[in-house]
Design a protein around this nucleic acid. Sequence first.
DNA 1: CGCTCTGTTGACCTTTACGGAAACGTAATG
DNA 2: CATTACGTTTCCGTAAAGGTCAACAGAGCG
Lengths: 125, 125
Amino acid sequence: MLSTKTHFSIGELCEEFAVTARALRFYEDEALIAPERRGTQRIYSERDRARLAWILRGKRVGLSLTDIKELLDLYDVGDGRRTQKLKTIERCQAQVDALKQRRVDIDATVEELSKFVALLKGQTD
Amino acid sequence: MLSTKTHFSIGELCEEFAVTARALRFYEDEALIAPERRGTQRIYSERDRARLAWILRGKRVGLSLTDIKELLDLYDVGDGRRTQKLKTIERCQAQVDALKQRRVDIDATVEELSKFVALLKGQTD
DNA sequence: CGCTCTGTTGACCTTTACGGAAACGTAATG
DNA sequence: CATTACGTTTCCGTAAAGGTCAACAGAGCG
């Protein structure tokens, strides 16, 4: 049975993604996720869960929550008006370019650190 | 003449690296750089300049100043005691691993965003 | 019924990485 | 000598991304 859950409590998502409930509520305050409510309790849909995954990966690659929100929003209006579309493309492209630059920096840093490690390991002494 | 400067004022470095003087002094407070003084003025050596470049790249790849300080310090004691050496290698290796993971995340994000852009561009409408 | 779990809303606290501005020093320049 | 440029320290402020803690609510259970 491919655990086909479609709704999650805050605790479930916290555990799955190793984040605190506070963080999830914070993302909600910042309008990054908008789970439904049953009474006062939050119910996260599969889509919310996917967005959360996106958010966390965005964070790992060094995007700010603001950046992430913008990108998520752009996704949502992917079917929007033509004028908007160009802007959307522009911004996404800009983020892609920034990320590629970041990758260059990372490669350089990794290489430099690796050389250093190799040097240390090679020391006979 | 390959501009072979060996000493720099705070202003020069600020301009070259597009950082504020306040930031450089802050890095100094945090013991990331330690320029000499002529009287009260800071004189940055070629080595300080290199460290600064390292710091800034470290920041771009998402390391904290604390991480960066640790790595820079490890570099400096690269000739240190044997016991220390293992720890040094360990930490550097850990950072390298973390950075590689970050790269993977970046690749995934770049790909996803690129697909989205392609999709938008492909829309006839 | 009382206890424990899980969740909820605030309100305030914390850390990182600076920016700004005050108040002062020094050095060259008209 | 006064100005201007550049530099210094010190203190205060800010923004991001939560953490912490109090106080309370509903649900299941022995």
